[in-house]
């Protein structure tokens, strides 16, 4: 495999996968919780929370990246605190790239999960409550297993979106080879130099193949999760 790819391509691919995997894994619990809150509860700030979750989908990614830089940068309110307390720097590191990717992919993840929650019969949760299960047990034994297909779909959609993240990433963590230069950023770099067309095309093909593989895996996993939660003999 490494023979097929140049060291630079290999580096960008591995970094992209690492960033996307961390972005997906770290936002998964938050995504499940947010989807549950949006689907199952009603409170005064409900519409506002829903809008906030969807913001990355509708504003230019550069704006999100800039907002991240202002808040999570070394001089930002949250970023300064993170550095002082934990010694963690997000700006201009691959961790920051993961944060940017997670924020941008978050709406897609939550939407997929919420759809599967909305399709789920809330009456099953009521039935579980009457059988003596508290909210947490109902969530763990009924809600979560039944929304599994949505969780899988949401996670893979988010992973694919994170792989392709560009605008927010380049704004927040810049384009540093080996640290923050993911596939799209490497591709962008090739298009900016004379004679970079071949390299750009190769990276484009790699990106498409990885995204295709992720989507097909998502379909297969969602179908399996669906079969497990629906009928048939045990």
């Amino acid at each position: 495999m490494s023979g097929l790819l140049t060291p630079l391509e290999w580096e960008a691919l591995v970094l992209s996968l690492k960033v996307a995997a961390w972005a997906t894994a770290a936002s998964l619990p938050v995504g499940v919780l947010t989807a549950w809150v949006l689907a199952r509860t009603r409170f005064p700030g409900h519409a506002l929370l829903n809008a906030l979750v969807h913001i990355p989908l509708v504003v230019p990614p550069v704006v999100v990246g800039y907002a991240l830089l202002l808040t999570l940068g070394r001089n930002g309110a949250v970023g300064g605190w993170l550095y002082d307390v934990f010694g963690v720097t997000l700006a201009f590191t691959w961790k920051g790239a993961a944060v940017a990717a997670a924020v941008m992919a978050f709406p897609l993840m939550v939407r997929a999960m919420r759809q599967s929650l909305d399709a789920q019969d809330a009456g099953l949760e009521a039935a579980a409550r009457t059988l003596g299960a508290g909210r947490l047990r109902v969530f763990l034994t009924v809600t979560l297993p039944l929304m599994a297909p949505g969780v899988v779909t949401g996670a893979i959609l988010a992973f694919a979106r994170a792989l392709g993240e560009f605008g927010a990433t380049i704004t927040f963590v810049s384009n540093i080879p080996g640290e923050t230069q993911t596939l799209p950023l490497a591709l962008y770099t090739f298009t900016q130099v004379p004679g970079g067309e071949d390299g750009a095309l190769r990276l484009a093909v790699i990106s498409v193949l990885v995204a295709l593989a992720a989507l097909m895996l998502s379909e297969a996993l969602a179908r399996r999760a669906g079969a497990l939660t629906k009928g048939g003999d045990a």
Partner: peptide, 13 residues
């Protein structure tokens, strides 16, 4: 309180 619903509401999984 035991509750038998019109639509059974068995846990499908």
């Amino acid at each position: 309180v035991g509750y038998v619903f019109q639509d059974a509401r068995l846990f499908p999984h």
